[in-house]
Design a protein around this nucleic acid. Structure first.
Length: 472
RNA sequence: GGCCCUAUCGUCUAACGGUUAGGACAUCGGCUUUUCAAGCCGGUAAUCCGGGUUCGAUUCCCGGUAGGGUCACCA
């Protein structure tokens, strides 16, 4: 039997922005399709008109593209199974609904919402689980489309199935119920629509959050009633919030993935990081910093984790830094300069800045009043900080005078030359620090700053000497 | 509460019966052309508990504990 071409999909509902959890689900589906030279579909599940948020679809598309997830079929580019918006696929759902009705596997719900609520409340009071099917009508009329259409679960039984991540799963008959296929507003529910779409689109692997495990028996009953061979289930563990063990959700302040773009994270770092929450190459492959292609090459379903993992921003920062190091120099230069005032756009500052930065927005934090905070600002020198570890005032003053003299006579004003000359002098003294520390501090006035030679070069001879004189 | 699932350093994880339980982030210490950062080197740190099975359990089984998911005309 020839292997069927792998088809995966990501099917978000347009109810707002995408956070890391959603993007990771999309990423794994994308990765698996790429790994197998298969097809990856973006499908929008817009069947809940009340919760729909305007602009969500564009936002979702933008988010996915930023991270580097691209689809072969989708609402924006079409494809062999268009349309990819569920709201435009109503005919399909109706068609399969009719098949179920004909087979006697679907019926119109005769109850009002109030009546169902009453049933539910009663069950609750009696401390037993509410099951709609216990109230299933004996006989029913023709569905005219104004009522909800319910699935008449053919056989109430236990189910066993297999999940690539979780292994063999099972659930008792209480997991089955007569759920709604088509709502009274004419739109299908997720439970029904995704099954029809996955069938029609030839989806081979359903990769989705593991919260759907509990309703899988219902899906299984529906697959059976429709005579469909179910796809392969791949249940993904949740991404947990940093503070605790709760699933990361919008309510817990999960960020819009595009916020990370705004903060200056690299998409390749986000791609890499998300791939690693819940999956790893396994078996002695200790690589962590990987490119998209490297990840695709080794991606497999067997190393997807069973339990959730915390989103750790410190590690993201580290990974982002690693990816920055791998950037082409021109790109780095462009990114750094675009965040620097024009007069600070000096190539020799780039490595100095890069050492202190894990994401681009950190650079903006280093710029104050149009100047880089670690130098070029008029330094406010605190005398007490001028001396190196217990060095006497006189000694420090002498050193500064000597440095000043050396600098005044230096033949060529370059970082290298300044360094050579000053270091030659410093090495002759008891402790280099006695010379170097006041030199650096007199120029920057900061506890933390780049080395004095670079600062001196950037400041220029006059400004350097004048600052040293001022301190003396 | 019913049903289902999960459990290795603080965090992300490796191990698919036999390892001094490995790596990474974080943390701590050392080194370096002062400090900080960066870099390099090194350290601390984990198999939830209790029973089995086995010559041998992180690994298999059972129970407990803890945590999670789910019980909508939301997806």
């Amino acid at each position: 039997m020839p292997e069927k071409k792998v088809v995966t999909r990501f099917a978000p509902s347009p109810t707002g922005f995408l956070h890391v959890g959603g993007v990771r689900t999309a990423l794994y589906a994308y990765l698996w399709a790429k790994k197998n030279s298969g097809s990856f579909i973006l499908r929008i599940e817009d069947t809940d008109k009340a919760r729909e948020v305007a602009g969500s679809i564009d936002h979702i598309i933008k988010s996915l593209k930023w991270v580097g997830i691209n689809w072969d079929q989708g609402p924006d580019i079409g494809g062999p199974h268009a349309p990819y918006l569920q709201s435009e696929r109503l005919d399909s759902y109706k068609k399969y609904a009719n098949v179920l009705i004909e087979k006697g596997h679907a019926y119109p719900d005769p109850y009002t919402n109030e009546e169902i609520d009453a049933f539910r409340k009663k069950a609750e009071e009696e401390k037993r689980p509410f099951l709609y099917r216990e109230h299933r009508p004996e006989s029913f009329g023709v569905w005219d489309g104004t009522q909800a259409l319910r699935f008449k679960t053919p056989e109430i039984k236990s189910y066993k199935w297999s999940d690539v991540v979780r292994g063999e799963l099972s659930a008792g008959p209480e997991a089955l119920d007569d759920f709604i296929l088509i709502k009274s507003d004419g739109y299908p529910t997720y439970n029904f629509a995704h099954i029809i779409d996955d069938l029609e689109m030839g989806v081979t692997h359903i990769m989705r959050a593991d919260e759907f495990i509990a309703s899988t028996p219902k899906f299984l009953a529906l697959y059976e009633a429709l005579n469909i061979t179910p796809p392969i289930f791949v249940s993904l563990p949740p991404i947990l919030g940093e503070s605790g063990n709760k699933k990361l959700g919008k309510r817990d302040g999960a960020k819009d993935i595009l916020d990370y773009q705004k903060e200056g994270y690299l998409p390749e770092a986000m791609f890499n990081f998300l791939a690693l929450i819940g999956w790893n190459p396994g078996s002695g492959d200790n690589r962590e910093v990987m490119s998209e292609q490297e990840i695709i090459d080794v991606f497999d379903l067997g190393h997807i984790q069973k339990s959730g993992g915390q989103f750790n921003e410190e590690k993201l920062d580290w990974l982002n830094k690693e990816h920055i190091k791998r950037l082409a120099p021109e790109i780095t230069r462009k990114e750094v300069f675009s965040r620097l005032p024009e007069k600070m756009q000096n190539a020799m500052l780039i490595p100095l800045i890069l050492d202190r930065v894990s994401k681009w927005s950190d650079i903006e934090g280093m710029v104050k009043d149009g100047e880089l905070d670690f130098f070029l600002k008029t330094p406010e020198v605190d005398k007490r900080k001028l001396n190196y570890k217990g060095c006497a005032n006189d000694t420090t003053a002498t050193h500064l005078k000597n440095i000043s003299e050396i600098l005044a006579n230096i033949s060529e004003w370059s970082t290298e030359k300044i360094k050579t000359e000053v270091m030659a002098y410093a090495d002759k003294t008891e402790k280099r620090g006695e010379v170097l520390h006041p030199f650096r501090y007199a120029l920057s006035g900061l506890d933390k700053s780049p080395d004095p030679f670079t600062i001196a070069f950037i400041l220029g001879r006059n400004e350097t000497i004048s600052r040293i004189q001022k301190v003396i």
